[in-house]
Computed example of a mutant assay.
Amino acid sequence: MKHVPYVGSGPYCYANSFAMMLGVDAPSTVTIEFATSSPFGMQLLGGTLPFFDPYGWTPEAGFDAALDAMGWISAVTKSNSKEDALAQLELALSEGPVWVGPVEMGHLRHQPGMNGPIGADHYLVVLAVDDEGVRMHDPQGYPFSTLPLDDFLTAWRAETIDYGDSFTMRTDFRRVQVVQEDDVIRASLPAALRWLSMKHPQHVSEGTVGNEEAAELLAGMIEGGCSDDLRGHLIHFAVRVGARRLADAATCLARVGGAEAAKIASNQALLIGSLQYPLAVGRDAEAAAILRQLAPGYSQLLGALQGLSQNP
């Protein structure tokens, strides 16, 4: 199948938030996501929770490298109490919008159905704190939304997120070098290789497995009886973002002459996207078979990226 780039909605919260903060000079969200290395691998966290992102990777692990590749820097602030966090936020807002996260999505009660922690991370751009609470651009699809201050601070505490620190924000985004998008992609290839090789994990909980082993193990879990929680995680988040990440990776790799790597990434995207229907309707044997087709693609993509890096 010919690769067709995806354009549409989806859970790209930090890439969209970065794009808002960088303004008119922002690369496309396709390139921002690529630069974080998110497409390059799969992990089964703790041996039970699947993510189509690299072994040992978290969003925070990719942010600074992505900004560096794009020619930007920012200042990171972390607070120890909600009082200090609020004071820091209000001070920063006097200079402009503030990038905030991770936050616990389940406490974002402006989103329908959110009534408490669900262990899902999220990123936002805060615009103001006023009498109505916190006003923000929520890239989940809620521009200029408001949230009562107490709910926002509870979400920002991020106690139920398994990485990062409470009350983290980024400010003072500055462009220090003009980098064209193709050069951002090229500059991000070494990090992509490191993550896909599984040699430099940063956040590995006990029992976590990656890439082919993760795909095979998940296939067995689904065949053995897919729980409602696992199915919900896959069809509402993991499959959607995983397919999009790899589709965007294919687009980026093709731009810099990586035709073989782009072809493999596109096929991986197709396979992950193909999981959505069978998982949604309970055709679990079909989903397991797709995962087993997906498994060898990670080593194939690694080989193609190694070839691209040796012959840029």
Rank of each mutant, 00 (worst) to 15 (best):
A214S: 05
M21G: 09
G164M: 08
A295F: 06
D150L: 09
A261R: 00
C226L: 12
F18K: 00
G257T: 03
Q180R: 07
D151Q: 12
Y163D: 09
T154G: 12
M198Q: 11
V209H: 11
P97N: 12
R157Q: 15
T36D: 10
L193M: 06
G113E: 06
H203R: 01
D165S: 13
A214Y: 08
D284L: 10
L124T: 10
V179P: 10
G210F: 09
G141F: 14
W156R: 01
L45Q: 15
M70L: 12
M1Y: 15
M21S: 03
E60W: 06
L279V: 11
A69W: 01
V176K: 02
V176P: 03
C252G: 01
S274F: 02
Q293K: 10
Q180M: 11
W99L: 06
E260Y: 10
A66W: 02
P27K: 00
I290V: 15
D172W: 03
A238V: 05
G207I: 04
Q300P: 09
P139Q: 01
G242T: 06
Y12H: 14
G71A: 01
G258M: 10
A85G: 03
I235C: 02
S188W: 08
L217E: 10
Q88H: 15
L234I: 04
S17G: 14
L127Q: 08
